[in-house]
Design a protein around this nucleic acid. Structure first.
Lengths: 199, 199
DNA sequence: ATAATGAAGAGACTACGGTCTGTATCTAAT
DNA sequence: ATTAGATACAGACCGTAGTCTCTTCATTAT
């Protein structure tokens, strides 16, 4: 990385940090791009050279979310446990993390952005790590006959993703006034009960 | 209603009809308020006198959705059938209606608006007819022991709403490329299976 | 009949996300 | 060493949602 690129990355990082701090402080919608470039002593030109939109600054911390799942949540899952137990634990840990570390405003902003923008969507990216995590768990679950007959791993993942979306959308809609962890528990208890083999 | 109010309502209606037509024609984001007031020979003043935002013009047709549920879907439910059957049918009819008559762009716009605006939210309005429909069905289901022990009607409604939100959000996100009806079937089969009494 | 009130509406104006053009400077090819 | 190209950045500019002020005129009170 040469001098020029290094300078660019420094500016980009400076903007990210200032923006995230401001968003956290006063909420995404109450922070303007003009303000971000003002406090960082940069310019619109610099900002839009590094990001395609104000929303995209979020993508930075968003990518860290899946990273966190892979690095800190998956290792907590005990491979000796049934897949169902592991799924339940994963969902519990995931939602706890989102509720306590990420917060509803960031979640809301991401959910809003994904709907509004024509640009590339992270939710629709099939290579998203979250999908791999769920897929391999579901695959294993099917092999061990923990799921009802007739389900393909892909279908179960779809169902689970729908559940997550519903729970997270609703939590965002309620501006964090509901308990994400409690609602998640209620929804996925029913969902997983409906998916598992009746014995 | 005096002359003045009558004139006001006439203007409002004119704006609604023109706006809905334009939205339907070219998509919500590609229609500007300036354009709407131009084709209706009105003004920004008139527009914002009747609506608090461009999004709100949608609310008009949105209210018709619940109206439709009450007037056309609920009557199709056979009270002799088990509640579970009726719920399944209701969801099927609901999603078919949304897919074929309302469309993903309108749905997407509503879902986006509900997240973005600080203003009054229709989704959060406890008096929304949809909630009554679901609540009374669930209440009856509990009385007839069709649901697992321990569930309150209120909880089941919450779970169902989460399911709907997830399915509809995802469908909007995919810009109608997935089959809402099929995905709904998959999700709610699992969900209702998990809620019903195991016998 | 006259005056006061206040809603419906017109349209200039503001705020802000995003674009466009221009400039300085680093890098790479000759 | 010189030159051509690329890129980080500055900041003027644009488009559009939403606001503010002002006018008009139906309605109501006196």
């Amino acid at each position: 990385m040469n001098v020029r690129q290094k300078q660019g990355q420094k500016t980009k990082q400076k903007i990210i940090e200032a923006a995230i701090a401001l968003f956290h402080e006063r909420g995404f919608n109450n922070v303007t791009v003009d303000e971000i470039v003002a406090v960082t002593n940069t310019s619109k030109g610099a900002f839009y050279n590094h990001f395609t939109s104000k929303h995209e600054v979020f993508a930075e911390q968003f990518k860290q979310i899946d990273q966190f799942y892979v690095e800190h949540l998956v290792p907590q899952l005990d491979a000796d446990q049934p897949v169902m137990e592991r799924l339940t634990l994963f969902l519990e840990l995931q939602m706890t993390y989102l509720q306590n570390k990420i917060g509803w405003d960031v979640t809301r902003t991401i959910y809003e952005q994904e709907l509004s923008t024509e640009r590339s969507s992270y939710f629709l990216d099939p290579d998203r790590p979250l999908y791999d995590i769920l897929f391999s768990l579901c695959q294993e679950g099917i092999e061990k006959s923990e799921f009802k007959e007739g389900y393909r791993a892909h279908n179960i993942v779809t169902v689970l993703i729908h559940g997550m979306r519903g729970v997270l959308y609703n939590w965002s809609l309620n501006r964090g006034r509901t308990s994400l962890v409690d609602e998640q528990r209620m929804v996925f208890r029913a969902l997983l009960d409906g998916l598992k083999t009746g014995d």
